[in-house]
């Protein structure tokens, strides 16, 4: 993969070229003009078809490249450009947008509200992703230790949760956490000594984000559990048997054999989870519908959304978006490199 590899068409001489080459190289003296013209034409045709074959893969990727350029490339460039200019309400009405270097970034970074949102997003992402991962691993290990019936039951339950569209699950969860008729308060209230009747979960930012985290974890655990379970089933039976014969205890086997063998899967799943939990716009936005949409309840996605569409501060929104892009690319670079290596082999 390090150097561009030659297309397969180039190595063997195409038949047309072989037929024609002795004529071209040798005695064109005793050729009629017609013959010569025919030879030249054949040569041109051969060259053309060779070039066409070489260009074929480029033609094949053109549609994909074009749509990516329009849908992703242009917006990214626009965002970079806008984040370096003054671009607010006045520019909406045709005023020129002066170049301001990194003023938008410094303004954002000196804003305590942005810092609060950024830190909140990172903490939310870290907490949700690690709990998801722990539960997912526990589920996977559990699946490999129970009978077929319970395992299938658990798998079907996880699949159903996984397949729910975000908006539909958010609606159900909003109802489960409804302060008056929600099941959560009803069940908690049954515990002696706990008075949760009419407790408003979405009022306090902390419990708002706790609810958001529970929902996000509920949605994400199935993917983690299935991926890691798939990794567990890859461990050869003989290895486990041999270690049991050698007297390894259950916890030793988990620590010394199972975990090292599924480490690559865990790494990938963890990385994807971190990236996904950084972008929980839909969940937060829909939870804000049921609760409050003040800035205290914002994560990066909803913050950028309000900055752009609400305050019409496109320069600030672009600068914040560029920062999110940079964070995402930094985190995913390792993963992309790994996939490229897989492609090369």
């Amino acid at each position: 993969m390090s150097s561009p590899v030659l297309p397969p068409q180039r190595t063997p001489e195409p038949a047309a070229v072989a037929d024609w080459s002795p004529v071209a190289r040798g005695s064109h003296v005793n050729q009629t003009p017609e013959q010569r013209e025919a030879a030249v034409k054949a040569a041109a045709a051969a060259r053309r078809s060779k070039r066409r074959a070489r260009l074929l893969p480029h033609w094949l990727v053109i549609p994909a490249v074009a749509i990516l350029a329009v849908g992703t490339g242009y917006p990214t460039l626009w965002q970079l450009w806008t984040s370096l200019h003054e671009y607010g309400l006045r520019q909406q009405f045709g005023q020129p947008a002066p170049f301001v270097w990194f003023a938008n970034y410094t303004q954002l970074l000196s804003d305590s509200q942005f810092w609060a949102v950024l830190i909140r997003s990172l903490v939310f992402c870290f907490v949700a992703a690690s709990i998801t991962l722990l539960i997912g691993i526990a589920f996977a290990v559990l699946m490999s230790h129970v009978g077929k019936g319970p395992r299938l039951t658990l798998q079907i339950a996880l699949l159903l949760a996984w397949s729910m569209p975000i908006v539909a699950s958010m609606t159900v969860w909003t109802w489960l956490f409804d302060r008056r008729r929600g099941v959560v308060n009803y069940v908690l209230d049954m515990i002696p000594g706990v008075a949760m009747n009419r407790y408003n979960w979405l009022e306090d930012p902390l419990s708002f984000f706790a609810v958001a985290a529970i929902i996000v974890i509920w949605m994400s655990v199935p993917f983690v559990a299935f991926s890691i379970y798939a990794g567990l089933t890859q461990i050869p039976e003989e290895v486990m048997e041999a270690s049991a014969l050698d007297g390894a205890s259950g916890s030793q086997r988990l620590r010394l054999i199972i975990l090292p063998m599924i480490k690559p899967v865990i790494a990938i799943v963890m990385l994807l989870q971190v990236i996904w939990d950084l972008r929980v716009f839909a969940q937060i936005r829909l939870l804000q519908d049921a609760g409050s949409s003040a800035t205290d309840y914002d994560l990066l996605g909803t913050y950028i959304f309000k900055l752009g569409t609400g305050a019409q501060n496109f320069a600030g929104a672009s600068a914040a978006s560029v920062m999110v892009l940079l964070i995402t690319i930094t985190i995913s670079w390792w993963y992309v490199r790994k996939l490229l290596r897989e492609d090369a082999s």
């Binding site: 992703t72 242009y74 990214t76 626009w78 990236i275 716009f281 990066l300 959304f305 496109f314 978006s321």
Partner: peptide, 13 residues
Amino acid sequence: MLPAEALFIAQYK
């Protein structure tokens, strides 16, 4: 890997 949240303002414009 890019999140929609990091591009949607530009896509809107």
